[in-house]
Design a protein around this nucleic acid. Sequence first.
DNA 1: GAGCACTGC
Length: 746
Amino acid sequence: MATERRRKVSLFDVVEDPGGGAKKAKANGGTDLINRWNGKPYSQRYRDILEKRKTLPVWHQKDEFLQALKDNQTLILVGETGSGKTTQIPQFVLEAVDIETPDKRRKMMIACTQPRRVAAMSVSRRVAEEMDVNIGEEVGYSIRFEDCSSARTVLKYLTDGMLLREAMTDPLLERYKVIVLDEAHERTLATDVLFGLLKEVLRNRPDLKLVVMSATLEAEKFQGYFNGAPLMKVPGRLHPVEIFYTQEPERDYLEAAIRTVVQIHMCEPSGDILVFLTGEEEIEDACRKINKEVSNLGDQVGPVKVVPLYSTLPPAMQQKIFEPAPPPLKEGGPPGRKIVVSTNIAETSLTIDGIVYVIDPGFAKQVVYNPRVRVESLLVSPISKASAHQRSGRAGRTQPGKCFRLYTEKSFNNDLQPQTYPEILRSNLANTVLTLKKLGIDDLVHFDFMDPPAPETLMRALEVLNYLGALDDDGNLTKLGEIMSEFPLDPQMSKMLVVSPEFNCSNEILSISAMLSGTLGSSHQQLSSLGSMPPVGMHHRILIPNWFVRPREAQKAADEAKARFGHIDGDHLTLLNVYHAYKQNNEDPSWCYDNFVNHRALKSADNVRQQLVRIMARFNLKLCSSDFNSRDYYVNIRKAMLAGNFMQVAHLERTGHYLTVKDNQVVHLHPSNCLDHKPEWVIYNEYVLTSRNFIRTVTDIRGEWLVDIAPHYYDLSNFPQCEAKRVLERLYKKREKEKEEARSRK
DNA sequence: GAGCACTGC
């Protein structure tokens, strides 16, 4: 222990002078004009930025921070918006720690995790500028689809999910000297897994340090979890925001929100308005109504620009939130105003400057997972206090602001829960459990989760992985499971992909998997901002992007276009048709436009597909297709899909409705399906609970295949009494008879 | 015959 202690200290060369870079350069044998990191002279721009950096709140506590870092292995830092922690703390760390290795060509790194890709990209660009180096060299970032770092990189920003991936091949994270977990209060699934993992790694690597950065005072909870690690608080830099509550509860929050917008516009000084609503339809509706109400007021009030904002809005439309408010109609007339009507996207992911008024009805759509029926549903539910706090903060970024909460103060105090439930308590954990197993965590029950998931959720996940063959009966990772864990897909999908060569259709399953695996990411590139924050729930599930565009003014034409891609045996095959058509038309955006196909979604599917192909190659999984003209072409694809999705099967009962297999839930085919008939058996990708229980993205499969491909799941000794069971009994008998006949023929 | 809060690998 004593030697470890000494070693730790000697590796830690803290600079006593808070002056920073210039002095360090001198110490390195150069002059104070030379950049320690790349040996080049500092630019004037560097010095200008440095002066501004020094005014950030964290700089006042630089010495205190470095001393605490020197004395402790783990440190918790709480800083609200505007403290500068995300950009400055990793630089402080870099100045202070010794990152040399015996190998002179390579240094150890500082990692800083972010929940979102755009943040990792934009923050690292900013920091590279501040350090006067080129992005991708000494300072870099690493996100899915893009590694912008090199052998020279000493400071790397990366998504929390990416660090988790790295841990799969480098379990002790030996490339890193210090790991900074930023935005820890958001409690993403990946951050929560990293918490537990890093606690273990820290025990095995006394030379590694961890800085946990968070924006809320839940930090005391973090402190308890990290064995009493010291906590440092850094003030934020927000303007004051005055909070107003309603006297009485509002019966109709949409109507109340619109009324409040109009009142602000009539009575309050200039400044833009941000309204939080729950979804696309509600937002579009509100925008129309606001425009109508304001135009009814005539020219007594200034002009307004009402802008909707939600994630599925095309980027060009989202860009409108950055346009300035309209000028007064006539000189000296009442000022114009921009009114942004947004989902939660404006709470964390996007920051709009110039907002002075926030209207918060107190609701958001949130996912609720029920492990008993294995269903996730999207429900409009009250937000948490932390979320309300975050929303109000959006009014104080550029000047003092006002926030109008459309609920009573009593309701805020008594009804809202303090924090949004962390994602790990609200998700299906099949994929997370697979990752943990791959990381070498064998005993999940005793894994040190900050908030342990319900045992039932873990049991469900283990059960699913066992049925898929990823875990053996003792819960150990199988060879198959090991390969599956490498794919950035849900276990059902990675299973069908890994076995698809056996069905001679891996090319097609690759395309279908890529289409189903929705990442419309990187579209917010220009929309990003350094602002960030709080605990609003994220979740993990299969969410399928919109491949088809259906503009209000051309719905009929869009439906006709979609029908042209339709495959009567199912939606998965329809997706394959769309993908093939897209490739045959050279990925042409105007072809997409003419055919009402979402070019962004297809482009991102193509990107995902390339990544999946690389992983297939790593494991020598064959890329193959059946003859397109053979009768087996689609049959093979449907069988391969069943090999992964045999747990998401529904059976058509004689009464005319579908029952899910084993769970016996009544479900309905979602009307968006492309089938021309009601198949006896279907596999489905999504279970959506809206006006009815729908299964969406469905494909016709044959009962015989259930018996052939998944007999361990369709084991009738362990099956509830139902019509499907009787059908399966007949199918098993039929198979046995066929076998007997085959034997007697021999 | 219906509708998609938000992320990530």
